[in-house]
């Protein structure tokens, strides 16, 4: 498990600035509806890596879900 840190940090969540009170990715995810996939700073984060992923100030986090496409 990644080291937990109780602090406030600011990241870019789906393109919007957001302040978090935890640096654990897994703490942030329950607000999103399944299915979703995650990219951190433009790189894919596999689901089995969520518990080990620590966020840092200024990170860009993208959480995506299925939509229509051509």
């Amino acid at each position: 498990m990644a080291e937990q840190m109780k602090t406030e940090l600011s990241i870019w969540l789906n393109g919007k600035k957001e302040s978090l009170d935890s640096n654990q990715l897994s703490h942030l995810l329950p607000r999103f509806k399944s299915p979703f996939a995650v990219a951190l700073n433009g790189c894919f984060i596999a689901a089995n890596q969520y518990p080990n992923t620590v966020l840092q100030a200024g990170d860009q986090l993208d959480i995506v879900s299925p939509i229509a496409g051509g």
């Binding site: 789906n14 999103f32 996939a37 995506v64 879900s65 299925p66 939509i67 229509a68």
Partner: peptide, 22 residues
């Protein structure tokens, strides 16, 4: 069928319906 991924917007419920139909 083709489809895609976009940032999830919790306030928009359309994505869930789409996924269910597909």
């Amino acid at each position: 069928v083709t489809l895609s991924l976009r940032r999830q917007a919790p306030e928009q419920q359309g994505g869930e319906q789409f996924w269910q139909l597909i």
